[in-house]
Amino acid sequence: MRSLSFENQQRLLIGLRYALLILIAMIFIFPIVFMVVSSLKPDMQLLRDSGSLRAFLPVGDISLDNYADAFERVPMLQFFFNSVFTTVVSVAAALWLNSMAAFSFAFLQWRGKALVLSLIIATFIVPFEVIAIPLLMVVNSLPWLGPGGIEIGWLNSYHVQIIPFIADSLGIFLFYQYFRDLPDELVEAARIDGASIWQIYTRIIMPIAGPILATVAILKFLGMWNAYIWPLMTIRSEELRPIMVGLQYFFQLNTAWGEIMAYLSVVTIPVLLFYLALQRAFIESIATSGIKG
């Protein structure tokens, strides 16, 4: 038998590699396929199919009824808008404030920096669930400038869903780690050229922070988009509720599984799109920066 030529060997290797990649992809994608396929089935069939491979196949009584019903049950467009609004504002503000703080930690010398940095990392340890109640009391006693002058209490508003979550220690930490790895000469050279600190931050560091901006943005996006416990505690009006709260609308005496799957599919797609959009930016920025080495 003739041994494979080098070229064929390479082809085989690449083929194997793709086979492996596809196999892994199936492991990651199957619950999502299950979700989307189930959203097309009536409840009874969905529950019966869930025990067999039919769960992954759009077979049987397929329709978009669940979507129609879900739209009827939940004011989805309103919720959708609310989530987009709170999420976009939070992501933008988070990128700005966290990167700015991290820049200060990474490049500027000031007293107490090390202590503050370790305190920030320590706050990352506190799970949200354990401070939700005291946080509620804090926001309830804060002032806000409303249409009728200064009001006390932030409940039932957009800002109560946004402001407490803008700064987060993980975000600062991620930026800090990234900035610290950048070569010091970058900043020093700019200084010698007479650039101000603000210019260094906006014109030199931020433009090459693409990958970490994308990472923090995705993280913040997910946290805000999936917000669940907090809006339940602070939002009274349907006009202000975010989209994940809508999930609760389906757990009635008889749980509407098909509608839940439909709703979840609708909720999940924007996040996937957001990730896809950012992923491209993220790859491109890496390709074009080539800053290291």
């Binding site: 509620l136 009391m137 409940l155 339940l232 505690m233 602070t234 009274r236 009006s237 349907e238 757990f251």
Partner: peptide, 21 residues
């Protein structure tokens, strides 16, 4: 009328009570 989902209704009420609302 203001409507809340049942699953979390009690938490909403307790939160409102804590906030005096």
């Amino acid at each position: 009328l203001e409507e809340f989902p049942q699953e979390s209704y009690n938490s909403s009420i307790v939160a409102a009570a804590l906030a005096g609302d």
